[in-house]
């Protein structure tokens, strides 16, 4: 099980990192989401144990599963969700100001602006 989880974490992280390097902002966000899920899954995998449900009164006869990782992962998922929402909001704003959901376009717009600034400075 640990092996499967580590493989999935690796694939998720790799795919996420690949998407992060794309110029399309939506892909970048999907990349962030994938990386966040890789982290969540790693967190789940870190305390994986199989046993009785950890509900009071505890059954002392055999092992109980670790409830902590579930709580941690839930917290991390909520944080990841908040961050995704924030990024989507940011993309909308970037789009509104640059009219392009694409980093290449944004970079070109920036370069044009810089060039204008340079011209102004020279003329002064």
């Amino acid at each position: 099980m640990i092996l499967v989880i580590s493989l999935v974490v690796a694939i998720l992280f790799g795919a996420g990192a690949y998407l992060l390097l794309k110029p399309d902002l939506f892909r970048v966000i999907v990349g962030v989401v994938l990386v966040s899920h890789a982290a969540n899954l790693a967190l789940m995998g870190s305390g994986l144990s199989r046993g009785q449900p950890p509900i009071y009164p505890l059954p002392f006869s055999d092992g109980i599963s670790d409830p902590l990782v579930q709580a941690l992962t839930l917290t991390a998922i909520v944080i990841g969700f908040a961050v995704t929402t924030l990024l989507l909001g940011l993309v909308v704003r970037v789009y509104r100001s640059h009219f392009a959901p694409d980093l290449d376009e944004v970079a070109r717009a920036e370069a044009r602006r810089e060039a204008e600034l340079e011209r102004d400075e020279v003329s002064i």
Partner: peptide, 24 residues
């Protein structure tokens, strides 16, 4: 906004690496 997007994405990557370290 452009700066904030870059800031957010790069630092999120850092945060998730930290989270993986916490898991470890």
């Amino acid at each position: 906004t452009g700066g904030a997007f870059i800031f957010a994405v790069v630092n999120l990557l850092g945060s998730f690496i930290f989270l993986i370290a916490v898991a470890a």
